[in-house]
Structure formats: C-alpha cells, structure tokens
C-alpha cells in the first residue's frame, strides 16, 4: 500500500473516428485500467469526440530528454538529400 496511496496517472489517447490515428488528448487519475477507460470516456468524449480510447499508465511512457534534443535530433539536420526538393527535375518533365 505504501507506494500506491496516490491514485496513478494515465495518459489518454482518442481516435476521433476510424481512419484516423489515436491522438493524445490529456491525462487523468484512476486506480486501474477499467476505471481509467470509463473516466476517459466521461471526461474526454462527452460530445461524441471518440470512436476508440487508449489509456496508458503515465509511468510507462519513455520520453526523449528535451534538454538534449539538439544533439538527439542532430543526425537529421544536415541531410537535405532526404527531401524531394534536393533533386533538380526539368520543368518540362511536369509534376513529379
């Protein structure tokens, strides 16, 4: 009991309708997964905002470190050849 006297935090992801990805929409506290789902329904889909809900314990989310983000994302910074505009195609070839 000692470690869990605080009701755990959950992250809520909602799929607005089929065909779209689940998207993070907020968080809530709940004792277990079932209560988290029900609370997420009551809090985040009161006006038909969702077709499907995921809840994930916040403690299970692993996040990149924002203070190290410059170095972490650095490998992509100098690779302009990954973008279509790096390549010259004559205008008369048309849209490509």
């Amino acid at each position: 009991m000692s470690t869990s006297s605080v009701t755990p935090l959950w992250e809520v992801f909602i799929r607005p309708r089929n065909g779209l990805a689940h998207r993070h929409c907020g968080s809530l506290h709940a004792a277990d997964a079932q209560m988290a789902l029900q609370a997420a329904r009551d809090v985040y889909t009161r006006r038909g905002e969702g077709q499907s809900i995921w809840v994930v314990p916040s403690s299970n989310i692993v996040a990149s470190d924002p203070s190290a983000s410059a170095a972490f994302f650095d490998p992509a910074d100098d690779k302009i050849y990954r973008h279509p505009t790096f390549y010259d195609i004559p205008d008369d070839v048309g849209h490509m």
């Binding site: 009991m1 869990s4 006297s5 009701t7 709940a30 004792a31 277990d32 209560m35």
Partner: peptide
C-alpha cells in the same frame, strides 16, 4: 472510495 479502488487494483 479512493482507498478501496486502490486496494482492489492492488489485489487484481
């Protein structure tokens, strides 16, 4: 209620 919900979650 909060305590019971947590205790139930622990038990599960």
């Amino acid at each position: 209620v909060r305590e019971a919900a947590l205790a139930y979650a622990e038990k599960q």
